[in-house]
């Protein structure tokens, strides 16, 4: 985790950056409507562009790509940081309950129709943040009262509170009418569709600074991964690192949850894939997770549009223009990838 040469770093960033760049470049041309990659880019540069092509590619698809990019990048980055902090390969903002708390907070805002902006930030995001911080405080209090605080104690406390939040969300959903329930269930599956009034630009101040802070912690996290006492004896303020990382992660995740609902698997599998390919050094793991997380979610978003289309072609039924929820697709893609990863590690 030391001794990473510039060449290794540049090679890793080039590979991950290239994957992400390809995903972004092709994204305006992939979707349910019959507008291809060349049509999409031609509509941007032609003097007299096809207005329909332009609208589909650049007003419908590209904003989704940006959302997927931001959400996937931040979720994967937070996943990588949480796995190190909790010393557990299963730790993600979802497994430690933070995302469930954020989802509950956001859902309560939607249910109470508290849809406004405060200082340019959406009230739903503030609700999500309150939910995430609430879970964090309960988890920390529970863990502190335990005889010995370990990563596993925190994780167990987080999982338990996460289940409680899920139960509360089901309760709130059960109180809604049919149409509202449908919308809520779609949101809970994770979605890149615009739901409510939460716009990406509103959330960037809540996502970018925490992500930059987490990237800055890369060298300290390297020390942390060999033990807290060794890290402390090498000048790392362990407690500050833990608190700042968890708060920064919670902030970014709650902002994403308020926009996209809970999207699982990104924070779990991307850091594992990155570590498998590039080793354990956080100076590479964190930025590589950021880049590949965005690429992965953009790829999954392609599949949410293409899968129903392919299904229609295979079964010779009418093709649908409806998309699958992104959370469903990350699970469909993520589960086999993660299982293959587990088996390959064993062998």
């Amino acid at each position: 985790m030391g001794a990473v040469s510039k060449t290794t770093f540049i090679r890793a960033m080039f590979i991950c950056g290239l994957v992400l760049a390809v995903m972004i470049l092709v994204s305006p041309g992939i979707g349910t409507q019959d507008v291809g990659i060349f049509d999409a880019w031609r509509s941007l540069f032609d003097d007299e562009p096809n207005r329909i092509h332009h609208a589909i590619a650049w007003q419908l698809r590209f904003p989704r790509t940006l959302k997927a990019l931001v959400a996937g990048s931040a979720l994967a980055l937070c996943g990588a940081v949480f796995q190190t902090l909790f010393r557990n390969p299963l730790a993600t903002p979802y497994t430690v309950g933070i995302a469930s708390g954020a989802s509950l907070g956001a859902l309560i805002c939607y249910k109470l129709h508290w849809l406004t902006t405060i200082g340019g930030i959406s009230s739903v995001s503030i609700g999500a943040l309150a939910g995430a911080i609430g879970v964090l405080l309960v988890v920390l209090l529970l863990a502190r009262s335990a005889a010995r605080v370990t990563g596993n104690t925190l994780l167990l406390a987080g999982v338990t509170i996460g289940f409680f939040c899920s139960g509360m969300m089901m309760f709130i959903t059960s109180l809604a009418d049919v149409s509202e329930t449908h919308k809520t269930v779609r949101w809970l599956m994770g979605t890149l569709d615009t739901y409510g009034h939460v716009e990406l630009t509103m959330l960037l101040p809540l996502i970018i600074p925490p992500c930059l802070l987490l990237l800055w912690f890369a060298r300290d996290l390297n020390q942390y991964s060999v033990g807290t006492e060794l890290a402390a004896s090498r000048g790392v303020s362990v407690e500050k690192l833990e608190i700042a990382s968890i708060i920064a992660g919670s902030l970014a995740v709650s902002a994403i949850v308020s926009m996209c609902g809970p999207i699982g698997f990104v924070g779990l599998i991307i850091p594992h894939l990155v570590r498998l390919g590039f080793g354990f050094d956080h100076r590479i793991v964190l930025p590589a997770s950021l880049l590949l997380g965005g690429a992965f979610l953009i790829g999954c978003d392609f599949l949410t549009a293409l899968a129903p289309h392919w299904y229609g072609q295979l079964t010779h039924t009418a093709t649908t223009t409806a998309r699958l929820p992104i959370g469903v697709m990350t699970a469909i893609v993520g589960t086999p990838v993660f299982l293959i990863l587990l088996c390959s590690k064993r062998s």
């Binding site: 985790m1 030391g2 001794a3 060298r219 390297n222 090498r234 000048g235 050094d281």
Partner: peptide, 12 residues
């Protein structure tokens, strides 16, 4: 992690 990586951490 490699031996070199662990030793390098001492430079923190």
């Amino acid at each position: 992690t490699s031996v070199m990586e662990i030793v390098s951490l001492g430079r923190h």
